[in-house]
Amino acid sequence: MTVQLNNGFLKQQTGNTIQIDQPVKLLVVNLMPNKLETERQFVRLFSHLSLDVAVTFLRMASHHSKHIPEAKLQQTYATLTDVYDQQFDGMVVTGAPVEDIAYDAVDYWPEFNTLLNWRHDHVRQSILECWAAQAGIYVDFGINKRVIPKKLFGVYRCEIDQKTALTAGFNQLSMPQSRHATLGHINDPRLAVLASDPEAGPVILASKQTHSTYISGHPEYETNTLFNEFNRDREKGLPIQLPKNYFSKDKPTNTWQRDSIHLYDNWVHSLKKVKV
């Protein structure tokens, strides 16, 4: 369906001026350094959904990018102050390359906490991905991440642990993973594990109390994203293994796109149902 871009680098690049009547309103909090790449990944994913969406991109005002001039960010992205009085059907918070840093050492940690508090009154449902999922679970439930000795890297085929509106239509679910930390056994009645893998651990978790879904991986990744990350880490001299379950005949193979579209489509339909 159609994606209306309210702001962002991709809107500037494409000149997107689409206006949709009664779209699902999404706020995407982009914590990744390469904002244009992440925008493209999510917009491509949203373009395959069966409902129209309008997307506003948000940045952390307290973080100063090393990759993008501050003036450019101010012109292109909204901050929490800009949208503070608005209401959104859904919010997505991306991952961030800060897994090896203590939460309170992340420069935008106070603002991140403010964002999560704000969402309770201004967002119907939220999805937090990768680092944001771990950080959100820590803020919401006090469950800390566990750093693992070797990067979890590849595509993992997850079992469905609970059938809900979000996991409807799935028998299993494939998802890219690229992280240095994980969550251990979840033993909190407020937090349900919807999908998991023996090696990747809990992959999709949800809470009725926080109206949030916590996804440990990256459903938005494009076909070559894991391969690009492998080459980047190798060029930096970091210890990295080839991504698991990713290559077919020595070529990166996208086995997760259909599942990612289905997952997000289930989510936006749930948002549409609760609109008043």
Score class of each variant (00 low, 15 high):
residue 17 T to W: 00
residue 18 I to V: 11
residue 18 I to M: 04
residue 19 Q to C: 00
residue 19 Q to S: 07
residue 22 Q to L: 05
residue 22 Q to T: 10
residue 22 Q to Y: 11
residue 22 Q to C: 08
residue 23 P to W: 02
residue 23 P to F: 07
residue 24 V to E: 09
residue 25 K to Y: 05
residue 25 K to T: 05
residue 25 K to A: 03
residue 26 L to V: 10
residue 26 L to C: 08
residue 27 L to Q: 08
residue 27 L to Y: 06
residue 27 L to M: 12
residue 28 V to M: 12
residue 28 V to G: 05
residue 28 V to Y: 04
residue 28 V to D: 08
residue 28 V to L: 14
residue 29 V to I: 13
residue 29 V to L: 04
residue 30 N to T: 10
residue 31 L to F: 01
residue 32 M to D: 08
residue 33 P to R: 05
residue 33 P to Q: 03
residue 35 K to R: 13
residue 35 K to E: 13
residue 35 K to L: 03
residue 36 L to D: 11
residue 38 T to R: 08
residue 39 E to Y: 13
residue 40 R to G: 12
residue 40 R to W: 04
residue 40 R to F: 14
residue 41 Q to Y: 04
residue 43 V to M: 00
residue 44 R to G: 15
residue 44 R to L: 12
residue 44 R to A: 09
residue 44 R to F: 02
residue 45 L to M: 13
residue 45 L to E: 07
residue 45 L to I: 08
residue 45 L to Q: 07
residue 48 H to F: 15
residue 48 H to D: 02
residue 48 H to P: 05
residue 51 L to N: 03
residue 51 L to T: 04
residue 52 D to I: 00
residue 52 D to N: 10
residue 55 V to A: 06
residue 56 T to D: 13
residue 56 T to V: 06
residue 57 F to D: 10
residue 57 F to Y: 11
residue 58 L to S: 12
residue 61 A to P: 02
residue 62 S to C: 01
residue 63 H to N: 06
residue 65 S to F: 02
residue 66 K to D: 11
residue 69 P to V: 15
residue 69 P to E: 09
residue 69 P to N: 02
residue 70 E to S: 07
residue 71 A to Q: 12
residue 72 K to H: 04
residue 72 K to D: 15
residue 73 L to P: 02
residue 73 L to Y: 05
residue 75 Q to G: 02
residue 76 T to D: 01
residue 77 Y to I: 11
residue 78 A to L: 15
residue 78 A to E: 06
residue 78 A to R: 11
residue 80 L to P: 12
residue 80 L to E: 07
residue 81 T to N: 15
residue 81 T to F: 00
residue 81 T to S: 12
residue 81 T to R: 12
residue 82 D to Q: 09
residue 82 D to R: 05
residue 83 V to P: 04
residue 83 V to Y: 13
residue 83 V to M: 12
residue 84 Y to H: 12
residue 85 D to A: 15
residue 86 Q to Y: 11
residue 87 Q to Y: 14
residue 88 F to E: 06
residue 89 D to N: 09
residue 89 D to T: 02
residue 89 D to E: 14
residue 90 G to M: 14
residue 91 M to I: 14
residue 91 M to G: 04
residue 91 M to Y: 10
residue 92 V to L: 15
residue 93 V to Y: 06
residue 93 V to T: 01
residue 93 V to M: 09
residue 93 V to D: 02
residue 93 V to H: 02
residue 94 T to K: 14
residue 95 G to N: 14
residue 97 P to R: 03
residue 97 P to Y: 08
residue 97 P to F: 03
residue 98 V to Q: 01
residue 98 V to T: 13
residue 99 E to F: 07
